[in-house]
Design a protein around this nucleic acid. Structure first.
Length: 280
DNA sequence: AAGACGAAAGTGGTTGA
DNA sequence: TCAACAACTTTCGTCTT
């Protein structure tokens, strides 16, 4: 674990594990406490290029001596230079705000956003942005973050909102994995199954069965090399059949963003290799 | 008539010489 | 740079409910 400002970051994968600083406002019950506990501004965060420190030195007003005024003027000038005039800083500021827009649009929780922010910072530090567009690096950071945290989001979904293509996003993603040598866990397809079950409004029982099927499939090495969505969709389909909550292949195919044929192929493989002991 | 099934050809991307 | 390759899609005809 490495402590990075206000977040605890996993050194191996870059995931933001926890925050050191409390994000709740300090409570104060008496005037004395309010003096002692006062804190100006929100806690710091990797999400902002300056750590969330909004400090600005304002323009000097007229009631100061000439000397003081000049001094303040210089301070202000330097702070602005340090703050955003540096090209890298400006890039970071723009990118991080893009990142949080994206994460919002995909309704991803804050820890995903934080992890992605950390990844993005590492990318910048390694000067990896040459040629590549901000949209791609931002998207790839977010995708990486999702993978690490086991949140099922596809390249397609992110590419659509990040104003880029699946192809380019995928390329940036692979590039970043290599350059930052991040360990990316394989997609947890159980999470996909859970997501599909939610979207299809399927019972918890069926969802459980789907996940059990997936586990079995994984043990039997039926999952390697296959798209996680397809297998999860097939398992979900089997589960709905077993529990008499049958959904059409078309319905499942649509929510899973794969075709019926792919579902059928996975489904067939699963039936062939899995002796389904059906505990109803 | 709608859904399930599967064969065959096509697509876009990776890999390795 | 090119060909082989794997995963997946598209399309379409046939069977099942």
């Amino acid at each position: 674990m490495i402590e990075d400002a206000a977040e605890i970051v996993c050194g191996a994968c870059g995931a933001v594990v926890d925050r050191l600083m409390d994000s709740r406002p300090n409570r104060a019950f008496t005037p004395e406490q309010s003096q002692a506990r006062a804190r100006t501004g929100p806690p710091t965060s990797v999400r902002f290029h300056d750590g969330g420190m909004g400090t600005m030195i304002t323009a000097p007003r007229g009631d100061l001596s000439g000397e003081k005024q000049r001094e303040l003027f210089n301070l202000r000038k330097w702070q602005q230079r340090v703050r955003v005039s540096d090209a890298t800083e400006r890039n970071l500021a723009i990118a991080l705000s893009e990142l949080s827009k994206l994460a919002g649009a995909l309704s991803l929780p804050p820890n995903i956003l934080d992890t992605a922010s950390v990844i993005y910072r590492r990318a910048i530090k390694k000067r990896m942005i040459r040629g590549r567009s901000i949209a791609n690096i931002v998207g790839a950071s977010l995708y990486l973050s999702c993978r690490q945290c086991g949140v099922p989001r596809s390249l397609d979904e992110i590419a659509a909102l990040a104003m880029t293509t699946k192809k380019e996003l995928g390329r940036s993603f692979r590039f970043m994995v290599r350059a930052l040598d991040i360990v990316v866990p394989p997609s947890r397809n159980a999470n996909y199954a859970a997501q599909f079950s939610n979207r299809l409004a399927i019972s918890g029982k069926a969802e459980g069965i789907a996940i059990r099927i997936l586990k079995k499939a994984q043990q039997m090495k039926l999952t390697s090399g296959r798209g996680p969505a397809g297998i999860a969709a097939a398992s979900t389909y089997i589960a709905t059949v077993l529990t008499n909550e049958r959904k059409t292949q078309r319905e499942i195919a649509e929510t899973a963003n794969v075709t019926e044929v792919t579902i059928r192929n996975r489904y067939r493989e699963l039936l062939e290799r899995l002796t389904l002991v059906v505990p109803l």
